[in-house]
């Protein structure tokens, strides 16, 4: 089972939940930018949740399915189409061999996830299938997908899930239900943060500005970091900091006073002062901000940040149970 890349688009890579345990060697986690959309995409095709999927950025990517494939598309709405028809998102979609899927233009959000039942079959490198472009490892030969690439799909029990409604003429079949996301991918977001380790080293004025101003996403933002522009954030007494560990969502401020939110392809160590740390549950909404998108930061306590994680985990467990039972119903009805 496989699919062929027809158009590479802006950037498409193979990603999974990321690479852990190699940070001490300078190898970062990489992995999906929007873990929420990624998990749902996997569950919707009957996967466990940590199978490798495609992360499609912004526009122009197109694939052809070289075999019958159960697929789901989540995350950003990049106007997916097949045979001139709009393909519905956040639900299982069955594509016949030879069908094409093209992402026409960004409607909302920045990154779409395409999961296939069984998962994308590329070798694990250091325990993960995620592409690390900088290190040139993981994914498909350590690089972004190119036109002409043929990507293999792993066989699994879920590859045989059948949808009850299969008309013969359409390039794809789908279901009437969907797992509507709990979050919105608008271009203007309020992102919740806790204080960073060097928060107190910033001017009082800078600390106030950080929470009161709107920042916009610079076009040079990428999987490494979201570069923001807005009111300058100055230090009380500028000095060199000793490099230390950073995490996804660390908001660091270089000498120019313009904050950067570190993302999946960040370096493992950083030497810039950290003003804030994005709550884990809000990382997907940062990851979906398009260039020019706007963001405001809202302070929450550490305890709230943890509670949000527990609350989201509870919602997601519920969602997974519902998806599993819906898929079972479909399969039974198709018999």
């Amino acid at each position: 089972m496989s699919l062929e890349v027809l158009k590479r688009g802006l950037l498409a890579t193979v990603q999974d939940i990321g690479r852990r345990g190699y940070g001490k060697f300078g190898v970062g986690t990489s992995g999906v930018m929007d873990s929420y959309a990624y998990s749902l995409a996997n569950w919707l095709v009957g996967n466990n949740g940590e199978e490798a999927a495609l992360e499609i950025t912004w526009y122009g990517f197109a694939v052809k399915f070289l075999s019958d494939t159960l697929v789901s598309i989540t995350g950003a709405d990049l106007a997916p189409e097949s045979g001139g028809l709009s393909v519905p998102m956040w639900r299982p979609v069955f594509f016949r061999q030879g069908s094409e899927l093209i992402f026409k233009r960004p409607v909302s959000g920045c990154r779409s996830y395409v999961a296939v039942s069984g998962g994308i079959d590329v070798p694990e490198v250091m325990g993960s299938r995620s592409t690390n472009l900088r290190a040139g490892i993981g994914g498909l030969n350590g690089r972004a997908l190119e036109s002409g690439d043929v990507i293999h799909i792993q066989h699994s029990a879920s590859s045989y899930i059948r949808l009850s409604d299969r008309s013969e003429n359409s390039p794809f079949q789908t279901v009437k239900w969907s797992a509507a996301p709990h979050m919105t991918y608008g271009g203007s977001q309020v992102i919740r943060v806790t204080r960073g380790r060097q928060f107190e080293d910033f001017h009082q004025e800078a600390r106030d500005r950080f929470f009161q101003s709107e920042y916009s996403v610079k076009p040079e933002s990428d999987r490494m970091g979201y570069r923001l522009s807005g009111p300058v954030l100055g230090m009380e007494c500028p000095r060199e900091y000793i490099s230390e560990g950073v995490a996804a969502g660390t908001v660091q401020v270089p000498a120019d006073g313009q904050p950067i939110v570190l993302m999946a392809d960040r370096q493992t160590l950083g030497g810039y002062p950290k003003i804030a740390q994005v709550a884990s549950v809000d990382l997907p909404r940062v990851a979906q901000l398009p260039p020019g998108g706007r963001v405001r930061f809202q302070e929450i306590s550490h305890s709230e940040s943890e509670q949000l994680c527990f609350e989201q985990a509870r919602q997601m467990r519920l969602l997974k149970t519902m998806i599993d039972s819906k898929l079972k119903e479909e399969n039974n009805a198709a018999d």
Binding site: R20, G21, Y22, G23, K24, S243, V246, T268, C309, F310
Partner: peptide, 29 residues
């Protein structure tokens, strides 16, 4: 999950959903 040593600090990464904090302790941290 992992820990990353630097010059003077060690950063420790964990999955908070895997940690069941005992009663009386406010946060997973």
């Amino acid at each position: 999950l992992e820990c990353i040593p630097s010059f003077t600090t060690l950063t420790l990464y964990y999955d908070l959903l895997m940690l069941e904090r005992p009663k009386g302790i406010e946060t997973v941290f």
